[in-house]
Nucleic acid binder design. Structure first.
Length: 609
RNA sequence: GCCGACGUAGCUCAGUGGCCAGAGCGGCUGUUUUGUAAACAGCGGGUCGUGGGUUCGACUCCCUCCGUCGGCUCCA
């Protein structure tokens, strides 16, 4: 780590203390949780009992923080034996700090995950039970803390309190909920200003805004939350993605299948989903005394296609894929935009193979992901999670431990070979096996999983799937679950945000709009559209269609251009009397204008698509 | 689900206990036929998210529900 990074970190951490100190001055009864550094800033968890901090209080808190900064209080470090520290926590009426200290004394570390070790008074990686813990004190405010800090409160940069939100103490749902006060901080006012401006710009690229502006999707209170409705334009994008996935998938050996959207509950009892995800299952009651559910996943259905025929080792791998909607009764609080919905369109695939075939097949899927995302300029904006079991909770998973060990080892080896730079994430595995998850960030910095490749030795056994091996014995195939987009909804969200709505030519719902300058050019426009239709005959385009429209409204050219640009049409063709006279068209692209003859136009569009 | 904020016209937003609730843009009608990011004029348009309560009187205060946003938790 560079010195600069260190100082930025110390400064942000110091600001967390200053925030807490200011809150303590304003609300002396405040009980404090933890206050770590996060990306771009810091937060502090605070419990004020019955009173709550609201955004209206920010100016008051910031003013108090500025006073503390102006006072230039020194950050003094001292240590105490752990028992004295506990006595301090009691005296200061800080039950959360006391809990942390008790854990420190008993375990030598705290048991909660995601806790910043700078709070714990011990070095990262240190496992032994602690004798002493360190404190930092500035002015009247003393906090259990490992540090480091800046020398004094006057030596922090520019900061701003951003938002207040609820957060469970130590991240556990059963625990009391505290208020988490978030701030951002940078070395200079200019850097803070740049950050805030970038944040505003990012908000303007939010897919929820773009979805409305570009007329791609909508929500209705009557239909329900988390149930997106796709407009013709949005549907065009979805259909194009589907077509592209089918074409590319076929190249990698995939075959399209189709399944109904409900099934007997029993199907999911066998797979294990009904038990593990009972809260998220939509029930469908039949008049004939059969319990159905909306499918929350597609793997069990696909296993039954496999099971519909006797299989030989010569048939493997069998590679099913389809794009289909699945339904999950998500908690209302976590639904939002296209990022998390109740009706999810997945490009789901399940491949059945022998153990020997696993490696090749997983590599193929990784290449598929690379090819597909790469073509959209998205490959590289991600990191890969090697999602393995939580080894302390074996009952959360199905299948043999031996199979799990094998599967995890295979994925790890393969990820290293393929240079995926995967990070091992314990506790992130699926119910039935470990996986490689491709993680992307949305425009506001929230992580979203898109692609996934999952190894599963368990499900085939649960459904008694077999194939006859070369030696005549029946064996269970291995199942590989995979999604390239993950979900269409989430993928569209990330792609829209990345491109700010300027989709590549082949994906643009409306690729070309012809703007007329006056009515005298209409005959000529007819000749131009013939050329456009002809472009297809010359050589089939990637998806064999050219989507264009004609704007011959009684409006100014400026107005027509504005409307076309607002809806982010990549190619605008302007036709006026001058173009007619020259036998040409004026082409306006996002960043340039060009005059083209009609044959040049054809070639140009061929190259674009 | 939990904590907090919010919900006024198709969109963006004004209006914090007092006559029939406002603007800009969009829409519609008319005029204008326009050369690279918004022509001009006129006209429509709202049970102020929903249901209840307090009050002489509620867009405004209180409660329920629905929805949105920021987090937390969860994520096959």
């Amino acid at each position: 780590m560079s010195d600069k990074h260190d100082s930025l970190h110390s400064m942000r951490h110091s600001l967390a203390h200053i925030t807490a100190a200011a809150v303590q001055r304003l609300w002396p009864e405040a009980k404090f949780g933890v206050g770590p550094v996060v990306e771009n800033g810091f937060y502090y968890d605070i419990d004020l009992g019955k009173t709550t901090i609201s955004e209206d209080d920010f100016s008051k808190i910031e003013a108090e923080m500025k006073k503390i900064i102006a006072e230039d209080q020194a950050f003094e470090r001292f240590t105490e034996p752990v028992d004295e520290a506990i006595a301090w926590a009691d005296e200061a009426k800080q039950p959360y700090k006391r809990e942390l200290l008790n854990d420190l004394k008993r375990e030598g570390t705290t048991v909660a995950r995601d806790l910043d070790t700078s709070e714990l008074g011990l070095e990262a990686g240190e496992e032994s039970k602690v004798e002493e813990v360190s404190f930092y004190k500035n002015g009247d405010f003393t906090d259990l803390c490992r540090g480091p800090h800046v020398k004094s409160t006057g030596r922090v940069g520019a900061f701003k309190l951003m938002r207040i939100a609820g957060a469970y103490w130590r991240g556990k749902e059963g625990n009391p909920q505290m208020q988490r006060l978030y701030g951002v901080a940078f070395e200079t006012e200019e850097a803070l200003d740049d950050y805030l401006k970038a944040l505003e710009e990012a908000k303007s690229r939010d897919h929820r805004l773009l979805g409305k502006q570009l007329d791609l999707f909508a929500f209705s209170d009557l239909v329900g939350s988390g149930l997106p409705l796709f407009t013709p334009r949005g549907t065009t994008i979805r259909n194009l993605l589907k077509q592209a996935l089918l074409q590319t998938g076929a190249k990698y050996g995939g075959q399209e299948v189709g399944i109904p959207h409900i099934a007997k509950r029993e199907l999911y009892e066998i797979s294990g989903h009904a038990q593990k995800f009972s809260d998220e299952l939509f029930a469908v009651k039949s008049h004939y005394d059969i319990d159905f559910v909306m499918k929350p996943v597609n793997c069990p259905h696909h296993t039954q296609i496999y099971a519909s025929q006797p299989r030989s080792y010569k048939d493997l791998p069998i590679n099913y894929m389809e794009s289909t909607m699945q339904y999950r009764d998500e908690k209302p609080g976590q639904i939002g935009g296209l990022g998390r919905v109740r009706a999810i369109t997945v490009d789901d695939g399940h491949l059945f193979c022998t153990v020997d075939q696993i490696k090749d097949e997983v590599i193929k899927f990784c290449n598929f992901i690379k090819e597909f995302h790469g073509a959209l300029g998205m490959y590289g904006d991600h990191w890969v999670s090697l999602s393995v079991r939580d080894y302390s909770k074996p009952d959360q998973y199905i299948g043999d431990t031996k199979d799990w060990d094998k599967a995890e080892a295979m994925l790890e080896e393969l990820a290293a070979e393929q240079k995926l730079h995967a990070k091992k994430m314990e506790g992130e595995a699926a119910l039935y096996g470990p996986k490689l998850d491709f993680m992307y960030k949305d425009v506001l910095g929230n992580e979203r999983q898109l692609s996934t490749v999952q190894l599963d030795f368990s499900t085939p056994k649960r459904f008694s799937l077999t194939y006859t091996d070369a030696d005549g014995t029946d064996k269970a195939p291995v199942m590989i679950h995979r999604a390239i987009l993950g979900s269409y909804e989430r993928f569209m969200a990330i792609l829209l945000e990345k491109t700010a709505g300027w989709l590549p030519f082949w994906l643009a719902p409306e690729q070309i709009r012809i703007l007329t300058i006056n009515d005298t050019v209409m005959d000529y426009v007819g000749r131009v559209t013939e050329q456009l239709d002809d472009t297809l005959l010359m050589k089939p385009l990637k998806y064999n269609e050219l989507r264009y429209s004609i704007d011959s409204r009684n409006e100014s050219l400026g107005r027509k251009i504005r409307d076309a640009v607002d809806i982010k049409i990549p190619v605008i063709i302007i036709i006026g009397p001058k173009d007619v006279a020259e036998g040409a068209v004026s082409v306006r692209l996002r960043d340039k204008e060009e005059k083209m003859s009609l044959s040049e136009l054809k070639n140009f569009l061929q190259q674009l698509s």
